[in-house]
Design a protein around this nucleic acid. Structure first.
Length: 592
DNA sequence: ATCCTGTGTCATCAA
DNA sequence: TATTGATGACACAGG
C-alpha cells in the first residue's frame, strides 16, 4: 500500500532521505511517512487534481457525445444519404408500403434492440478510453462496415444513435477497430453484419445493395481482416455477396475521410476484396507490381482466371498512381455509349475505325450502336469475341493494345460478315460460356474495360459525388474515358432508378389492387347494410302504420264517433306525447 | 410469327 | 450550375 519511492530532491532532501532510511528500517517515527514527505503529499494533490481533470474531461466528452447524438443523421433509404433524423415523413417511398419484408425488418431490429445497451456501453467505454482531444476535427464518420445500413423504417427512433452517428469524431477510427476486436463487440458486429445482409436481402434491387465503401478503400481493409478473424465465414460470404450488388450509398458516406484511394493502395488486397476467389491465383502467379507487365501476365493466366483484367489493371499501382491509364487509342468523342461499331474490338474495320484511324466513341456511333437492331448484348459478342470464346478468360482484345487488337481482327476475319450485317447472332450466341461471360460483364463493364478505365464500374456508379470527383481528379483520364465514366455513372444510377421506379410502380399497382378489393368489399358491405336498413325501415313503417291506425281507430269524439282520418291526424312529439291534430288546422299552422 | 414481360437506356423534368 | 432521382417512352431479348 505504501509504496517506497524516491522523492524528488527538495531543499529538505537530506531530511527526507534520513526519514526514508528510518522508514525502510521500520523505525517508528510516530507518524506516517507521508507526513514528512512533501513530495508525496504534493503528488497526492496532483493526483487528485489530475483525477478531477479527467473526470471533467470525461463529462465534457459525454456532453459532446450527446450533442453529436442530437445531431445524428439518419440514412435515407432511397437516396442512400444521411439525412437529419428529424424528417419523420420524408420518404415518399419508404412509407408507401408496409410490406412483409419491412415488417420483418422491423421485427428484426426490434429484436436487436436488446443489444443496444451493450453497444451503448461500448460507446461509453470508447469515449472514456479514447478521449476526444480534437473535437473540432472534421474527421470522417468512420463507421465500421458493421454498421447496419439503417433506414427510418428499420431503425426505431429510440435506438441508440451511435449506430449511425456520422458525427463521431474521426479519432474514433482506431477506437472502432480496437473495439471491433473486443469480444463483447464481436457478437454485436456479427449481428450487424447479419442486419446488413438482411437489408440487402430485403431490398434486392438497387436501393438496398449496401455493402460498404470501405471495401473500396484500402485504408479500411484491416476492418475486413478483423471481421474475418472474428466472424464465421458465412457472415463474410454473405457480405461479399451483397457487396457484389452494389455499394451502399449510405455507407459510402463513411469513406469520406478515408485515406486516399491511391495512397496506400494495395492491389492484392483490393483484388482480394473484389475477387476473393481469385486472389490466390493472382497472388500465386508471377504478378508483379509493374502495371505494364501485368496485363500480359494476366493474358497468360487468364484462361483459368475470371478476374477482370481491367480491374486488375486498375488495381495496379502503376496504372493508378503513375496515372497513365490512358488507352493507347484516342477516342475523339467518347460518348456515352461506347459504340459497338466503334469499339476497338470490332471486327468490322470500316465501322470500328474512324477516318483518322482512331476508334470512335462518338454519339453518332453510339446511336448507331444502340439504335441499330444489332445494338445491345449481341454487339458485345462482337466487341469481345474472345471473351466469349474463352469463358473466364478475360483476356479479351481490350487487354491488348489497339495494334494487337487490329492484329486480332485481321486474324479473325470470320467475325466480319456477322458484324457487317448488323444484327445477327454471332456463332457463339448459343455458347453457354458466352452467356456466362455476358452475365459477368455488363455492357458498361465491357466498355470500361475497352477504354481501360482504372476504376470498377461499381466504384464509378456508387461512390458519392465528392469521392467520385476526388477519384477522378487523381487519375488523368482522356476525354473519352471521362465521358465514358460519366456515362457509366449516369447509366448506372439511372438503371437503379429505373429499377426502383418499376418496383415502385408494381407496388403501387399491388397497393391499388388491394385498395380496389377493399373498396369493393366495402361497397358490398354498404350495399348489404343499405338493404338491411331498408328492410328494417319498411318494417318499422309498417308497424308504425299499424300502430297509427290502431291508435287512431280507438279515438272517439265527444259524441262517441271515431275521428275521420281525412280531417284529423295523429302527431307525436319526441317525448312520446300524442296529439290529435285537425288536418285543416295543421295546414293552417304550417302556413303560419 | 406474334405477343408479353423484363430490362436497359435515353430524354426530360424537378428538386 | 451540376448532380441526382423519377418517370415516360423506346428498343431489345427471351419466353
Amino acid at each position: 500500500m505504501m509504496e517506497i519511492e524516491l522523492p524528488k530532491m527538495h531543499p529538505s532532501q537530506q531530511d527526507m532521505e534520513l526519514i526514508d532510511i528510518l522508514w525502510r528500517q521500520d523505525v517508528d517515527l510516530g507518524a506516517g511517512r507521508e507526513v514528512f514527505d512533501f513530495s508525496y503529499r504534493q503528488k497526492e494533490v496532483e493526483l487528485r487534481r489530475q483525477r478531477e481533470q479527467e473526470e471533467e474531461k470525461r463529462q465534457q466528452h459525454l456532453r459532446e457525445q450527446e450533442k453529436a447524438l442530437l445531431a445524428q443523421l439518419q440514412l435515407d433509404e432511397e437516396t442512400g444519404e444521411f439525412v437529419p433524423r428529424s424528417l419523420p415523413a420524408s420518404g415518399t417511398l419508404t412509407q408507401t408500403n408496409t410490406t412483409n419484408g419491412e415488417i420483418a425488418q422491423n421485427g428484426a431490429f426490434a429484436a436487436q434492440e436488446g443489444d443496444a445497451l451493450s453497444f451503448d456501453e461500448c460507446m461509453q467505454l470508447l469515449a472514456e478510453t479514447f478521449p476526444l482531444d480534437e473535437p473540432a476535427e472534421s474527421a470522417p464518420p468512420c463507421l465500421d462496415v458493421s454498421v447496419p445500413p439503417t433506414t427510418d423504417l428499420m431503425m426505431p427512433a429510440d435506438t441508440p444513435a451511435f449506430t449511425q452517428n456520422p458525427l463521431l469524431p474521426g479519432s474514433l477510427d482506431q477506437a472502432w477497430m480496437e473495439l471491433l476486436s473486443l469480444p463483447e463487440l464481436q457478437c454485436l458486429n456479427m449481428q450487424m453484419q447479419e442486419t446488413l445482409n438482411m437489408d440487402g436481402f430485403m431490398k434486392p434491387s438497387g436501393e438496398a445493395q449496401n455493402p460498404s465503401y470501405s471495401q473500396y478503400l484500402p485504408g479500411m481493409d484491416h476492418l475486413s481482416s478483423v471481421q474475418t478473424e472474428v466472424c464465421p465465414p458465412e457472415y463474410i460470404n454473405t457480405y461479399d455477396g451483397s457487396f457484389n450488388n452494389m455499394v451502399s450509398p449510405n455507407l459510402s458516406q463513411m469513406s469520406l475521410n478515408v485515406p486516399d484511394v491511391g495512397a496506400e493502395f494495395r492491389p492484392e488486397e483490393f483484388n482480394e476484396l473484389f475477387y476473393p476467389e481469385m486472389e490466390a491465383k493472382v497472388n500465386s502467379g508471377p504478378l508483379t507490381s509493374d502495371g505494364g507487365n501485368m496485363v500480359s501476365q494476366l493474358a497468360e493466366t487468364a484462361s483459368d482466371s475470371p478476374v477482370n483484367p481491367m480491374d486488375l489493371q486498375s488495381f495496379s499501382p502503376g496504372n493508378l498512381s503513375s496515372g497513365k491509364p490512358e488507352p493507347i487509342v484516342e477516342f475523339p468523342d467518347s460518348d456515352s455509349g461506347l459504340s459497338l461499331d466503334s469499339s476497338p474490338h470490332m471486327s468490322s474495320p470500316g465501322k470500328s475505325l474512324n477516318e483518322d484511324g482512331s476508334f470512335g466513341f462518338s454519339d453518332s456511333d453510339s446511336e448507331e450502336m444502340d439504335g441499330s437492331p444489332g445494338g445491345t448484348e449481341s454487339d458485345y459478342t462482337e466487341i469481345f469475341p474472345l471473351v466469349y470464346l474463352n469463358d473466364g478468360a478475360q483476356t479479351s482484345l481490350s487487354d491488348k493494345s489497339p495494334a494487337e487488337q487490329q492484329e486480332m481482327k485481321a486474324k479473325n476475319p470470320k467475325t466480319e460478315p456477322v458484324e457487317a450485317s448488323g444484327y445477327s447472332k454471332p456463332p457463339f450466341t448459343k455458347d453457354k460460356q458466352k452467356k456466362r461471360s455476358e452475365a459477368r460483364l455488363s455492357r458498361d463493364e465491357q466498355r470500361a474495360k475497352a477504354l481501360q478505365i482504372p476504376f470498377t464500374v461499381d466504384m464509378i456508379i456508387n461512390l458519392p459525388v465528392d469521392d467520385f470527383n476526388e477519384m477522378m481528379s487523381k487519375h488523368q483520364l482522356n476525354e473519352a474515358q471521362l465521358a465514358l465514366v460519366r456515362d457509366i455513372r449516369r447509366r448506372g444510377k439511372n438503371k437503379v432508378a429505373a429499377q426502383n421506379c418499376r418496383k415502385r410502380k408494381l407496388e403501387n399497382i399491388v397497393g391499388l389492387e388491394y385498395e380496389l378489393d377493399s373498396l369493393r368489399e366495402e361497397k358490398e358491405r354498404l350495399k348489404k347494410e343499405k338493404s338491411e336498413r331498408s328492410t328494417s325501415l319498411r318494417e318499422m313503417k309498417q308497424q308504425l302504420s299499424t300502430l297509427y291506425q290502431e291508435v287512431f281507430g280507438m279515438l272517439r269524439d265527444e259524441h262517441g264517433k271515431p275521428f275521420s282520418p281525412n280531417e284529423y291526424s295523429l302527431q307525436h312529439t319526441a317525448d312520446g306525447t300524442v296529439f290529435l291534430v285537425p288536418r285543416l288546422k295543421k295546414t293552417l299552422v304550417k302556413n303560419n
